[in-house]
Amino acid sequence: MNKNIERLVNGLWKENPTFVLMLGMCPTLAVTTSAINGIGMGLSTTVVLVLSNIMISALRNLIPDRVRMPAFIVVVASFVTIVQFLMQGFTPSLYASLGIYIPLIVVNCIILGRAESYASKNPVIPSLFDGVGMGLGFTVGLTFIGIVREVLGNGSVFDIAIKPLNDYHITLFGLAPGAFIVLGFLVAVMNVVRRKMEAKGRPLPEVQGCLAGDCTTCTLSTACTGKSMVHVKPEEIPVNPKDVAKPVPNTNVEVKHADNQHNTEDVEEAGRASSYADEMLEGKGEDE
């Protein structure tokens, strides 16, 4: 039981997907025009996350390693379709305001990321709590950003007008630019928190998603296509020295999977590249 509570705390606090790992930025920016939209999106993602975690964890010994990503995607997409129908039936106004972002839950980094890094390796019950923790953490994050944007952009919280603010609201924060700017300041605040925590000797887990500054860290791009980015030129590797110094905690696991799935061509190519590099080095040596 202890482990389950640890998973809950982990998702809500230690590895909060919005504030700490910075995953799932598309919906974070898109639907947080108001607090209620944030809660709606967060909860629907939570439902999908919990159900897909349970299903994937239950099937983890049946799914062959080579086809696990397509299998995960089918599982997630099925649950998204179910949730979409339920929302269409029971919360039509929320369904209308979230629009296209509901089917796009399928490509949310958090869900496939948890499936890949947790549910596919752990028993059902901890996976369930992992899903609940991560989902609620995401919901809290979206609601918080939603509240900030609604207060600034509309002068209200949960559609209840705040009297003096209501007269001076800045409509921009309800629109697209406001989303980027609010998130930018959130990242800046988290940078300060990160530095404080590091000074205390308790560093936060690294940013994992797109905001890490390069797509190769995203669990999905590698895992989905089954190849690591061997072609990537050195200059595309993140310039931020912090990102380079400390790899994402579960990198080892991913690398292992990626290795299994390398195309033979890729491996050959990598081999050729390295032997070529060796030749270059030897040549250089002879010159000297």
Binding site: L175, G184, V187, A188, N191, G213, N240
Partner: peptide
Amino acid sequence: TFKGSAIVLITAGLMAMAFL
């Protein structure tokens, strides 16, 4: 504090304002 992705997001915000 703003080095890295924070300044990029705020730049994107300003670009979004222009596209508005």
